[in-house]
Structures are given as C-alpha cells and as structure tokens.
C-alpha cells in the first residue's frame, strides 16, 4: 500500500481520537483536519465536528468537499448548531475536547510560540501571526497535539523566545496543576519526520516513533534540543487500506495530502 507522509500522519492522528469526542476542525491545517474527519468516518459515529463556526455530524455525507478558509460559509451547510465565537470560551463543553497547535517555535517541554522571534518584543526579528485561540484552548482541552509542517532546528528549540501556549513549562508532571490549569496538556508533537511524546515524570519531549524510512539520527540532526531517546524507537504505524480508502474517497478527494 502506497501512502504519503501526510496520509501517515492523518491516520496516526485519527487513531488517537475517540468516538464521542467533540472536535473543532480548522481550515489551514489540512492534515489534522483529515485526521479528525478520518476518525469520524472510520470509528467515530458519535463525534461532533466543529466546522466553519458550526457543529455537526458528517457521517452520512458521501464526500466531504474541501474548503479553503476557516469561515467558508459553504462548509456551514451541514450545521446542526451554530458556534457563537464569543461564547466558545465560556464552557469547556463548547470548546473542542482536543486541539491542534502549531508554532513558529516549540521547545523541549512542549511550550509553543506564535508571537515572534527575537529578544525584544518591540523589535521582533520575525513577527508571527499571533496566539489566535491557542492560549485559552490549551488551558482547557483534555489534551492537545503540537503539529508542525516542517521539522527544523529553528522551530524545535531548546527554549522559545516567547510562549503563547503553556505546555509543560520548565518540566515536571505537576507543571500544569501547580498553575491550576485544568486541561491535560500536550500529548504528542507530530512532525514530518517523527512523533514525540513526553517523558512521564519530567515531561521532556521523547522520541516515540520515527516515520517509515526516517532514522533516529536524521531526527536528532534536525532537532534543536536533545530529546529523550529510548533504547528502542519504533516506526509510526502505516495507514491501513481501509483508512487510505476513506481518506482518498471521502475526506481528501482533491489530494492535498498526496501533494
């Protein structure tokens, strides 16, 4: 079975999402979007999907037409309810159970930065897009996934210049409860080369699996900090024929994940 790295990651994400979960899907992260929709169609008939400021079920839709922008109203045609954006943060019930967080920097404890790069906030070398909803969402969601489109030592850094979403702070399994943050924190950091999880006690990033064809050495050479490397690192499990069929025939008919 041939598959692309993006399809592999979508399948990895899908397997970690459970039936009954309430999950919002953005537009600008096509791989996590595909992962969520794959989980929904593959094993999540009772999932609620947040899409273009609506909540819905897409189970009976033969093909999920792609849409390009977050609030594309064409994607609101399935709405069972509307998401009033200003109320989204009023209750964890209105917030997604899980969330995907990108970063222009992510550090070894899973803290992430969307503000910018530089020492002086008033004179950033690179101004980032801004925190969007990540600061609040990551306080509350049951768990979240750090997701990167590129695996680069300038992105995976020892320490972020700024932090917009608190992961595991300076480390320690109690880092979040000490601050009184109710959410479960980052579970995995997913990149085009590998998946990291977090060591149970000190919450340092740990290499969980490398994608087929990638070596541990390649990962370490492209990572700006020293992750925990277990004696034996497995491979990320490839998608099944059934997962690929759902992805290609219903979720990603335009082939964004194959490009």
């Amino acid at each position: 079975m041939d598959y692309t790295t993006k399809e592999l990651i979508a399948a990895f994400i899908a397997r970690d999402l459970h039936d009954g979960e309430n999950i919002v899907v953005g537009a600008n992260l096509p791989v996590p979007r595909a992962g969520v929709l794959l989980a929904h169609l593959h094993h999540g008939p009772n999932m609620t999907i947040g899409l273009s400021a609506t909540q819905t079920s897409l189970l009976k839709e033969p093909v999920l037409q792609p849409f390009k922008y977050n609030r594309d109203f064409r994607a609101a045609r399935w709405a069972e309810s509307y998401m009033l954006h200003h109320e989204t943060f009023d209750s964890p019930k209105l917030i997604s159970d899980v969330f995907f967080v990108g970063g222009i920097q992510i550090d070894r404890f899973g803290n992430s930065n969307l503000i910018g790069v530089g020492r002086d906030y008033r004179r950033l070398r690179f101004r980032g897009p801004g925190a969007i909803g990540t600061t609040t969402m990551t306080v509350y969601t049951k768990r979240y996934y750090l997701y990167l489109n590129s695996h680069d030592p300038r992105v995976l850094v020892e320490r972020c210049d700024f932090v917009t979403a608190f992961g595991w702070g300076a480390g320690g399994a109690d880092a979040r409860t000490r601050l009184g943050l109710p959410g479960g924190g980052p579970k995995y950091c997913i990149t085009p080369l590998c998946v990291f999880d977090f060591e149970e006690e000190d919450k340092r990033m740990r290499l969980k699996s490398v994608h087929p064809g990638v070596t541990v050495e390649q990962v370490l050479a492209r990572t700006g900090f020293k992750p925990v490397v277990p004696a034996k690192v497995g491979e990320t499990e490839p998608p099944t024929a059934e997962e690929i069929a759902i992805l290609r025939q219903r979720v990603d008919v335009e082939g964004v994940l194959r490009s």
């Binding site: 943060f89 503000i115 600061t135 609040t136 700024f162 917009t164 601050l179």
Partner: peptide, 13 residues
C-alpha cells in the same frame, strides 16, 4: 479574571 496566559509570555509582553 482568567486562567489563560498563566505561565506564558503574554503578561510580560
């Protein structure tokens, strides 16, 4: 009050 921003750079910047 909010819990959001605790442990982040937002109150600094």
């Amino acid at each position: 009050p909010t819990l959001a921003g605790l442990g982040t750079s937002l109150p600094e910047v």
